[in-house]
Design a protein around this nucleic acid. Structure first.
Lengths: 346, 346
DNA sequence: ATTTGGCACTCCGCAGAGACGAGTGCCAAG
DNA sequence: CTTGGCACTCGTCTCTGCGGAGTGCCAAAT
């Protein structure tokens, strides 16, 4: 799919993409020779442009406008042309100083991350809250509130805390709850929530549980605690930055995007998709497979705690985005969050 | 300030406001005689309009456009002209069916409320999360996670649950924690968080605490638990509805509004302001005292749990909004949420 | 004393015409 | 292969004129 391009084509394509990213205007042969270091006549550039267009890297909005990079061009640019430099000190500091406040809860930390991303990058920041289902169980705790109400609190290895108020059908004594707590903490330690649930369901099915009344009830309780835990949240910050993009003049398109933001499941899927991969990922336009996000790109990276990948974060905006500056920002932020989560759970 | 208007002026003003709300177009004397039930010639209407303009109820964008209601007109309309009817069954059902799922946590319930508001009203929904500081303490619980880490959970009467992970400077034994828990639960029951904190600080200052080491430490611990609890959140849903308003053509203005949304403290203040009042409140444009929200109106109502007002919710949009339909929606939703919170904590 | 019709005037919005500029493709000469 | 030239295409901008909707005011009608 990605045929190698001759040196010259490569060079011109790169110049067009960068110029377009900077100006948001279609690039003509003339402007290109003026503003870039290409020492060719406009006519030659035109020839190359025509070829690049034929190959699907460029596209003219109409006959006498300049050329605009296609998704294919961006893809090629990112995969083959882009050399991501390190994040400069100034930006590093800018990011760091957002996290000076210590002892943030994980939720607050992630929200701060999204906000920082959006302000530093001047794009819209996304942070996916870790999926509880696949995080590792650390501790479960039951607190009796009234005769029929039990508060369950459980904590994951990565320091996430989740509460759930349960109305029980029968009363538990405080002593029973303590026994149950101890038992469950022993049994489920080290398992992921998903595994823990599977275990519980399996045990409940087994007949030995039928004879041990307390055991049976403890399984019931924990099953209720773990069922339907709130999951799959995405924190979006800085949507107003999108309004500053010249692309915003296309009202219909921007409406589509804002609607997509409200359907968080969509963004969640995209962030989810990169979870297995390592490093920074870029998803361009139709690669999202959501028509609502046509013309949009995402830059994402995973963050992790002590025990492996937890979630993903990134920025989203029009495909015409300054990848070379944003990629390091996303990368650095992901690293930063990972470090902070590490410290917290030590 | 609000001088009484003659019957005729009143009638014409009302017609103009309603027509303008429906069409977003400046209203001329001619169109008014055509579309409303006013049996006067355009010329007479013009005279009245001129008077209304002089009194500050109307405003012409330019010489030969129609008239547009001013904030003063909206204020008068809402205070004197508007007769809020009950919410029709159809809409009631539409709202109800969003809450069929039972056993929602408070947070989820409030988020759902914001979403429902926005979809039913076709405006942007706002819900203020109750201020913990002023809610009534119900229970505090400490869970020892590791030698130096204690998880504190506390629960308010209204069923809100708050966690905090505390790094302690010295180790607590499980038994000590239990003692502390019992002591605190006894002492602080029925107080608001604010009062509880005040009590703790006072006790810590008193010398008797100095001699009781456990007491001292328990105060320290609870003070840390209650300090800086996350507070003052606003849930905003359905911002994309704003994009459908014809006012959206004024890009600059819309940018201002979206930026205001990101500064949640601003909306929080507005919602906060109505907390003392009863029933539905309408805040129009400059009454917000935020220039960012010029041309915007809020409709808010308070919701409460068993023990008094908890928070506020509402919708926000351009001042030209169909108050007569939105007010009942906001009102009904607030009532609904109050009922559901009541049930939950029984 | 109000109401109304008439009239002159204002001003926005729209559509068409023309100039301009940026860009293109192609071709033939370097 | 590169380049300059040339004819052509289009979108944008500006100007212009026109129609419509609205206004204010005045004098006649009620």
């Amino acid at each position: 799919m990605v045929e190698p391009l001759s040196d010259r084509r490569r060079q011109i394509l790169e110049a067009i993409i960068e110029e377009y990213i900077a100006t948001a205007q279609p690039i003509g042969s003339r402007t290109l020779t003026r503003f870039s270091a290409i020492s060719l006549s406009p006519a030659s550039v035109r020839n190359v442009m025509a070829e690049l267009e034929e190959q699907g890297y460029l596209h003219s909005p109409h006959t006498s406008a300049g050329r605009v990079p296609t998704e294919k061009a961006y893809r090629y640019y990112i995969d083959s042309l882009l050399r991501v430099n390190c994040l400069d000190r100034a930006r590093q500091d800018q990011i760091e100083q957002h996290y000076h406040r210590r002892g943030l809860q994980m939720g607050e930390l992630l929200r701060e991350a999204s906000r920082t991303l959006s302000t530093v990058a001047h794009y819209t920041g996304l942070v996916m809250v870790p999926r509880l289902q696949s995080t590792v169980f650390r501790r479960i705790e039951f607190v009796k509130l009234s005769s029929r109400q039990v508060l369950t609190v459980f904590i994951t290895q990565s320091g996430m805390i989740q509460n759930r108020l349960i109305e029980t059908s029968e009363e538990f004594t405080a002593a029973e709850l303590e026994q149950i707590t101890n038992y469950l903490n022993q049994t489920m330690s080290g398992l992921s929530i998903r595994e823990a649930r599977a275990l519980i369901l399996a045990e409940m099915a087994q007949e030995k549980a039928l004879y041990d009344r307390l055991l049976q009830r403890s399984f019931q309780l924990s099953e209720e605690a773990l069922a339907e835990i709130a999951d799959g949240e995405v924190i979006i910050e800085g949507t107003s930055h999108l309004l500053d993009q010249p692309e915003f003049n296309d009202l219909e398109r921007m409406k589509r995007i804002f609607r997509a933001f409200e359907q968080k499941s969509l963004l969640l899927n995209l962030l989810d998709r990169g979870l297995k991969a390592k490093g920074v990922q870029v998803i361009i336009g139709s690669e999202t497979e959501y028509p609502e996000l046509a013309g949009c790109s995402l830059i994402t990276a995973n963050y992790s705690g002590r025990r492996g990948t937890l979630g993903a974060l990134g920025v989203i905006g029009p495909s015409r985005m300054p990848y070379s500056t944003l990629i390091p920002i996303v990368d650095y932020t992901a690293g930063m969050i990972s470090r902070m989560l590490d410290e917290e759970t030590e």
